[in-house]
Amino acid sequence: MWLSALLLPWAVALCVITTIAGLYFALFHSPADYQQGETVRIMYIHVPAATMSISIYVAMAMASAMGLIWKHPLSDLAAKCMSPIGAAFTFLALVTGSFWGKPMWGTWWVWDARLTSELLLLFLFMGHMALLNAFDDPARGAKSAGILCIVGVINVPIIKFSVDWWNTLHQPASLMKSGGPSIHPDMLIPLGLMWLCFLSYFTVVLFIRMRGEIIASKVRALRLRQVHG
């Protein structure tokens, strides 16, 4: 709780500033692409959302592993609070990709390796949320959801390297690759700002949800004491 109290105001401030600056650079300042025209502006939502979807999944798997090994209650709680946020970013990445694919590829959807593995990520997030609530005993739910999440990590390198392993429609990486990013700073700045915006948003919402869950568990404990006392 002390950590969230310390970090929350900073995360909120960072989120507000990067939202304003990121949107300004993404919509007004950055140039149109020489091949893709104005549709390149979809990238400033699509790429940070996709990055967040994978990062949140990895964070959730680490929290689940800690929950299974050390049984720390906060780690299960963190995993529980992360999955709706991760699902939102995955859904956003998929839909914005679709809206980018239509004008550029001529289709809303193809069963390309990158697209399919990202869709699987959405199902993993949704399965995690469903399993958490599938048992009367929350501890059993957390254990099952944690195992699903850890097994699902196999999908993460598949998403990352799908564009190299299979030569399909989705373009290969232009940021996280050897030799540094291959895009112009005018496009790199809004990308970075929007990524910071999403990262700080994730921190803010995660802290709010975790606080809510901690207080809710206190309420449950008080109710139990009342019934038994």
């Binding site: 949107l23 919509l27 104005e38 549709t39 502006r41 979809i42 939502i45 699509h46 959302a49 956003l92 839909v95 914005t96 809206f99 980018w100 239509k102 004008p103």
Partner: peptide
């Protein structure tokens, strides 16, 4: 028509 729905949904 492709760009604004992305920002709107986000």
């Amino acid at each position: 028509i492709y760009i604004w729905p992305c920002y709107g949904l986000g």
